[in-house]
Amino acid sequence: MTDLFAAGPVEQYIGLMSGTSQDGIDAVLAEFKEGRFVRVLASHSGHYTADLRSELVDLSREATPVSLARYAQLDRAVADAFADTALALIERAGDRADSIRAIGSHGQTVFHDAVTIGNSLQLGDPSRIAVRTGLTVVADFRRADVALGGQGAPLLPVFHHAQFADAAEPRAVLNLGGIANLTLMPDADAGKVRGFDCGPANCLMDEWIERHLQQTCDRDGAWAASGEIDDDLLRACLAEPYFERDIPKSTGRGLFNLGWLEARDVQLAQRDPANVQRTLCELTASTVASALLRHAPRTRRLIACGGGTRNAFLMALLRALLPDVVVEDSAARGLDPQAVEASAFAWLACRRLRGESGNLPSVTGARRATSLGGIYAP
């Protein structure tokens, strides 16, 4: 790694990301040398107001119709939250932020259906972010891949491969956001990488605990650990056809939400809430483990990232279900689990401005590799 700090062009990019959990905006200031990710220089977490988050969750669940006027207002509100987060990060970074080339902004996904409709929508007007920060913004990363017949998701596997692949050890990366997605890396060959969404990670557990305990997440998985598995409910959930679909595949909160859970079990309201939470945690762990063993049984190391790594009970379940796999979080590989996604979008912005591809057709199913994202000047 020493050569990365030798004389040569060094650039800085900001990455902004809010995932399907919609629990906040992760921001990093990352350093790059000749297009290669070097390190995170600073990080910051921004937040939506409670009312805005609630409305975004409803929108992504397709629970409430929204007018075009309100959609436009939400686009602006998300952009302002992203811009505020970026400006707070720049202030925190101080004189380390003097040479920022651009911002990579993922935006807030509120709709994703690459199969039947062929589109993916993210809120957070990039032109507004550019004007408010005075920086070039790269955004709208998914739709170029979708236009080429791809899923437009997951986008992180190309970054996971660049950071975590090893020629001598079959590895996988597990992102535990609202949705769980896997990146499979049998060796260091990018052409062999596969990636897909397994199913729910935190989204169902977060919605369930918010309904019953008015908390936004199950800290350390403590509530889930207090309950017992409801076998009937678990079987009903595992009967979801998505779990058996071939890859590539992607999903989101539009499928996996409390409406989905209620449709699978008419007796849900009569079940013990703690037992439901325990069952939802088991659903996440079991579908991840099943997907890994089905598609990459030779995997020897699973590197976890995302907010779900803070759920100690979930991580323990994964280790129990995968006894022959080393399960660790990305901090063991030198990158904070909370910084991985935002770092990936800083990296994708860097690649876009260098004219380099940002997708992996072996992951998304696109017809070819392409640069991702539009460029928005301040």
Rank of each mutant, 00 (worst) to 15 (best):
T2N: 11
T2E: 13
L4P: 04
G8H: 05
I14H: 00
T20N: 02
G24Y: 02
D26V: 04
L29A: 05
A30E: 02
F37D: 01
R39F: 03
S43A: 12
H44Q: 06
S45D: 10
G46L: 01
L52P: 00
L52C: 01
R61I: 03
T64W: 04
V66D: 01
V66T: 14
S67T: 15
R70V: 10
R76N: 06
A88R: 11
A88M: 08
E91D: 14
E91C: 07
R92F: 08
A93R: 09
A93T: 11
G94W: 09
D95T: 13
D95C: 08
A102E: 10
G104W: 02
F111W: 12
F111A: 05
H112C: 04
H112Y: 05
D113S: 07
Q122H: 03
L123Y: 00
G124P: 00
D125A: 03
A130G: 08
R132W: 01
T136D: 06
D140K: 00
R142G: 04
R143P: 05
R143Q: 15
V146D: 01
G149H: 03
A153D: 07
P154N: 05
F159L: 07
A167W: 05
P170S: 09
R171K: 13
I179P: 01
L184T: 08
A190Q: 09
V193L: 01
G195H: 01
D197T: 05
P200M: 04
P200H: 03
L204S: 04
M205Y: 02
E207C: 06
H212C: 08
L213H: 14
Q214G: 07
R219E: 14
A225F: 05
E228L: 11
A236S: 14
A236L: 13
A239N: 12
F243A: 07
E244H: 09
P248G: 03
S250F: 02
G252C: 08
G252E: 03
G254T: 12
F256M: 09
R264L: 12
D265I: 11
V266P: 08
Q267N: 15
V276I: 14
Q277M: 15
L283F: 08
S286R: 14
S286G: 07
T287R: 10
L292M: 11
R298Q: 15
I303E: 04
G308P: 06
A312G: 11
L314T: 09
P323N: 06
V325K: 00
V326G: 02
D329W: 04
L335M: 09
P337K: 02
R352C: 10
R354L: 15
G355S: 10
S357A: 15
G358C: 07
